[in-house]
């Protein structure tokens, strides 16, 4: 049954690589912000998954904090793009 979790880890690793490629390519700042947002959502899911794999509850708290910070970060970037570019 652990094999399923390893498959999931491989899939989300490929996914985060693709999102990272978009982050590198751009072409605009907003595209990078989208890629970053997706990366942070993948990161949240990955943290929860790792928390289960290692049986550490603290990873769940970490995922929650990361979710809040990622959301605030994206909103700030959006505000910045709207007013300054």
């Amino acid at each position: 049954m652990n094999i399923v979790i390893y498959i999931a880890i491989v899939l989300i690793s490929i996914g985060s690589f693709l999102a990272f490629m978009r982050f590198v390519k751009g072409p605009t700042a907003a595209d990078r912000a989208i890629a970053l947002d997706t990366l942070s959502v993948i990161g949240i899911a990955g943290l929860v998954l790792l928390g289960y794999l290692f049986q550490r509850y603290i990873y769940i708290d970490l995922a929650l904090v990361y979710a809040v910070l990622g959301f605030i970060g994206t909103i700030v970037i959006a505000r910045y793009i709207e007013k300054a570019l």
Partner: peptide, 24 residues
Amino acid sequence: LFFVLLGSIFLFLGALGIYRMPDL
């Protein structure tokens, strides 16, 4: 486990969509 697998597939597809789609 089924939900975890489903979730990872969708996360992968989302990232693929981000990579492939033509505009923002």
